[in-house]
Design a protein around this nucleic acid. Structure first.
Length: 608
RNA sequence: GCCCUGGUAGUGUAGCGGCCUAUCAUGAAGCCCUGUCGAGGCUUCGACUCGGGUUCAAAUCCCGACCAGGGCGCCA
């Protein structure tokens, strides 16, 4: 159907008879000469109809009529000769821009209805609303941006596969129809027809299966695995998503991290053609929370938090006094003068109006407000500095290394609230002041996370990551469980968690103890995890692994706002596929076959 | 479950109490044009999400619904 693609023709094809096929992106009718930009997945080639160059007079009229009838996104094939363009009319932006194909014959392979939005890239054309793009995703995918995104994603995955294959990893597929896991995210449930009244769950991750593969002696496993979680959507969350899932035997945490650094280095070489700096910096959970106010720190800029609680204790400032009396903390951030005026010219980009806006923002974040002081030649100044004795402001200046023009921002509240708000403030300022513009991507290992955390409502211990993390110490009776660490590690990229892994419990007794501490009865443990503990009892090797979120990784590398931009057929915020209408009702007979009753009638109001 | 933002021709937008019979661009349909490449020129078509309310007067203000997105909770 074609001899070449639309991105292929070069100077050495000149004079050759070729046949191209593709979509008409643009057409230009000059009253006689007709130009078409013929596009396919590989590029765009200009094909031209020139009536004066037509030799066979008898075909001329019908060919001309046909060509003039072609609309945008019509699919055509053309036959003709490759020739140079008229001197001075070359298009240097296009690799095929110095030549064109002179149409001798053409065929309409398929016509296109008028488009719901523009597919061709045009200067100044804005994207249509996302629901329209999702409804017509097949058209959206024709846009070069989307096509490039998917190709980029493919190259990332291909490079990762190559790296893992080189290291002797085996890609193994694990079931999509699983047993429901008791904790964690909500499962998607699939009814069994053969065993009425029972249900499979779609996997939240292949966690247990990959551990079983280690027990099975597979030694090095990986999978580009689809995972399913029925939790509410975010811009970086979809009900189904893809993980690069890895597990290996006879390793410690450093071995897994080293492997991932190697995999990502291969990705870097493959897509950027340069080396990735390894090993990645390691930040402990404690350090991340106290310096950056988050467990997924972006360390590409400063704005670090300082605990100034003890310093401001000497102040007569009612707001701080009230919070301190309740055991709260005061966190301080120094917005250095040079950060505040790189982009927007003369005056400080964080003037009084902006500070007022930050105060409003802090209130919207659930803080009581935000206190500020600006460093001047006369020392710290602000509306409330009169409540701070000179020795307190002096100590603040020293602790925060305040130089002239610097802005100190204070957040006061319970320790966790102050830190979290500080983390949010950091992110907001980084965004507003464009602190990451032009900066390289930065990976960080987050290590030393606690094994457990207390549920804020029930007070019950719950797993910080998941219940399969090996505790730092196996003496679970003799230690403070609130401080007990796990052998886990998160991979953070530019302030987003893109991976999480750990060394696992391979000793069934340790694993059972962890389950018990999580509040599970022995009966429940045996029902839900009996097979798992049983397996660990048959000589499970020490093992560990990690899973990288491919959608997040790729979207961050591409600078996309949401992971939907790197997923061919994503769902909307309500988990609907606007293109095919999923989820949808099924016929009554299908339900009876599954022994299911639907409590929601045809009329929405009938819902119980 | 909650909070925030937004809904104007097919698409993207302007308008934000009367100058609205609603702007501009793009598109679609038609005509002109023999070297363009977002071709150009001319003509035509085509919209205020829905329901209440305030007002002499509502695209504009208020309330509610619906739809979309962002976030909180949730996501072991």
């Amino acid at each position: 159907m074609r001899t070449h693609t639309c991105g292929e023709l070069r100077a050495d094809h000149l004079g050759k008879q070729v046949q191209l096929a593709g979509w008409i992106r643009f057409s230009r009718d000059h009253g006689g000469v007709l130009f078409f930009d013929l596009a396919d997945a590989y590029g765009t080639t200009q094909v031209v109809y020139d009536p004066e160059a037509m030799s066979r007079e008898e075909n001329r009229e019908s060919l001309e009529r046909m060509l003039k009838s072609f609309g945008r996104e019509s699919v055509i094939s053309v036959a003709g000769v490759v020739r140079n363009r008229v001197p001075g009319t070359e298009d240097p932006r296009n690799p095929t821009g110095h030549l064109e194909v002179l149409i001798e014959d053409a065929e309409l392979l398929n016509s296109s209805k008028p488009l719901p939005f523009e597919v061709a890239d045009q200067k100044g054309s804005l994207l249509p609303s996302e629901d329209l793009r999702l409804k017509y995703r097949f058209l959206d995918l024709r846009r070069t941006q989307m096509a490039n995104n998917l190709r980029f994603r493919h190259r990332v995955i291909a490079a990762a596969r190559r790296a893992l294959d080189d290291q002797g990893f085996v890609e193994v597929e694990t079931p999509m129809l699983c047993r429901q896991t008791p904790e964690g995210a909500r499962d998607f449930i699939v009814p069994s027809r053969i065993s009425p009244g029972t249900f499979y769950a779609l996997p939240q991750s292949p966690q247990l299966y990959k551990q079983m593969l280690m027990v099975g002696g597979m030694d090095k496993y990986y999978q580009v695995a689809r995972c399913f979680r029925d939790e509410d959507s975010r811009s970086d969350r979809q009900p189904e998503f893809t993980q690069l899932d890895v597990e290996m035997s006879f390793v410690d945490d450093r071995d897994v991290q080293k492997l991932i650094e190697e995999v990502l280095s291969t990705v870097w070489r493959s897509i950027y053609g340069r080396e990735l700096k390894t090993p990645f910096p390691r930040v402990t959970f404690h350090e991340a929370m106290h310096r950056y106010g988050t467990d997924a720190p972006d360390i590409r800029y400063g704005l670090e938090l300082h605990d100034v609680t003890d310093i401001v204790r000497g102040a007569n400032y009612e707001i701080f006094k009230r919070i301190l009396s309740k055991g709260g903390k005061v966190e301080c951030m120094n917005v250095k003068a040079d950060l505040m005026r790189p982009t927007s010219g003369d005056e400080s980009a964080v003037g009084r109006n902006e500070v007022d806006r930050l105060i409003e923002w802090a209130k919207s974040q659930g803080m009581g407000g935000l206190t500020w002081m600006r460093m001047t030649p006369e020392g710290l100044q602000s509306n409330i500095v009169k409540y701070f004795p000179r020795e307190v402001t002096a100590a603040l200046e020293k602790e925060m290394d305040a130089q002239e023009g610097d802005l100190l921002l204070f957040l006061a509240g319970s320790e966790i609230a102050a830190l979290k708000a500080g983390g949010e403030l950091r992110r907001k300022l980084a965004r507003d002041l464009r602190l990451t513009e032009g900066k390289d991507h930065q990976f960080v290992w987050l290590v030393g996370c606690p094994l457990f955390q207390k549920d804020s409502v029930s007070g019950q211990l719950e797993a910080f990551h998941h219940p399969f993390v090996r505790p730092e110490s196996t003496d679970l009776e003799g230690c403070n469980l609130n401080c007990l660490g796990g052998l886990s590690y998160d991979l953070v990229l530019d302030g987003s968690e893109i991976g999480s892994g750990s060394i696992r419990c391979h000793d069934p007794e340790v694993q059972r103890k962890v389950f018990r501490l999580l509040g599970m009865s022995d009966e429940k443990i045996d029902t839900d995890f009996g097979f798992f503990l049983e397996a660990l009892g048959y000589g499970a090797p020490p093992h560990g692994g990690i899973a990288l979120g491919i959608d997040r990784l790729v979207s961050i590398l591409l600078g996309c706002d949401t992971i939907r931009e790197v997923i061919a057929f994503p769902k909307n915020k309500k988990f609907q596929s606007l293109m095919d209408g999923a989820p949808a009702k099924v016929e009554e007979t299908k339900l009876s076959e599954l022994q299911l009753l639907c409590l929601v009638g045809d009329d929405e109001d009938d819902a119980c």
